[in-house]
Design a binder for these strands. Structure first.
Lengths: 221, 221
DNA sequence: TTAATTTTTTAGATTTGTCTAAAATTTATT
DNA sequence: AATAAATTTTAGACAAATCTAAAAAATTAA
């Protein structure tokens, strides 16, 4: 049993899904930009996806994934993010190295493989960039993800991603014992320089605006 | 940077490599049989592989991999076997389930990924079927692999694979504490029923001919 | 509301890997 | 050695995914 859809089709579904999430509507040019391809190629593929009943599409009138298309897209995203988690957590890749490799791994078709991988990794809820990982039914826990500057005070949150991936910021965060998964709380915001006082494991730490902008946290609601 | 060679080309290289190992010479029909394709398709691909300088080929005169082709083939085999090891050892797949999945995983291109995986797995020397895993230079430890019936007496060997993958034999082996990696030695062969007396961790165990035929071991030389 | 611009689609070509049917070549048989 | 049989290759076709250039439709601006 080979894959149900070609890698190319899967990439289109994923791109359309992401663009839908961000912009609400999706355009041919958007998709072409996202996938580094030509608008004409996108149109070609839209027809195929429509024929496969994954997409609602009338020419010149825009398009969006239908239920089935969303379902397929979510499974690809699930695979992508689980593999990214694996690469960082088990193979010790840096967060900024894993995307490209996961782009290939996400097209491995075995459902059993991905469910076993999920189990092996301990059913992680978010990938190394802090994005949620859909479960095998395509559901994900709705968590708010914001940067530290926008985290309401006195609300416990968990570090879920870092924007800037430079060695410099990682060194700083490492020194202050801030890592993926660290639980923290903003106690005070200083209007003067937008610096923050945060609590980590009952210790008080000060963070500059520059750093705060690059630390993403999630909290349930 | 995408993959250097298409999955299809990689499959041809791997098939030719295996057939070369088994039969010495390789024929168009052989390859077609192995890859479930048509002889005409094989000829088409042979020309492409020749053009890419991976194959020595004169039409109607047979063909074989050149140094570069062998090198590429060995890297694919390395990937295939490391992934199989991963699937069995970490994700607890059965040995007979992993081949198909590894057929897909072996085409993931990142060299860094596979070297990290190798490290993560502890640099295994053989895959779950007992076949040797080439190292990142394409070398493998030359080990003799035989079934237990053909293992010379008084020679320490390591269980490297099981022929029959039925639950029944696995139960029996489990009960006798014979697993992948178990070190053992044949102490006596009974001509009457071809049963064997073997030593495992200083314990003496008797094995029937039927079982012995299905336990593969390797020993260095 | 026309005209200009942008976006999207079509038409037709290209590449990769495959196929079938027929031709060329090699191997086996009488 | 001549013929039959098997193998291998060629010729030409096809599907998938892409492209360019041109046409069609929608949007924006005058």
């Amino acid at each position: 049993m080979g894959p149900k859809y070609s890698s190319s089709r899967e990439n289109y579904l994923k791109a359309i899904f992401h663009l839908q999430e961000i912009h609400g509507t999706v355009t041919t040019n958007h998709v072409a930009g996202e996938l580094q391809t030509r608008p004409a190629s996108v149109t070609d593929m839209l027809k195929k996806l429509k024929a496969q009943k994954l997409l609602l599409y009338e020419k010149y009138k825009g398009f969006k994934l239908n239920t089935e298309g969303r379902k397929v897209a979510l499974q690809i995203i699930r695979k992508h993010r689980l593999w990214e988690f694996f690469l960082v957590e088990k193979l010790h890749f840096r967060w900024d190295e894993v995307h490209e490799i996961a782009e290939e791994l996400e097209h491995i078709s075995s459902k059993k493989l991905i469910d076993r991988l999920d189990e092996f990794l301990g059913f992680p809820k978010t990938d190394p960039h802090g994005d949620p990982i859909p479960d095998s039914q395509g559901r994900w826990t709705l968590t708010h993800q914001v940067d530290l500057l926008n985290l309401p005070v006195n609300l416990v949150a968990e570090v879920s991603g870092i924007g800037d991936q430079s060695a410099e910021i990682l060194e700083l965060l490492n020194h202050k014992h801030i890592a993926l998964g660290t639980r923290l709380e903003v106690k005070k915001k200083f209007a003067f320089d937008n610096s923050l006082e945060i609590k980590i494991r009952n210790q008080s730490v000060t963070i500059s605006e520059h750093v705060a902008k690059n630390v993403f946290v999630k909290y349930d609601e």
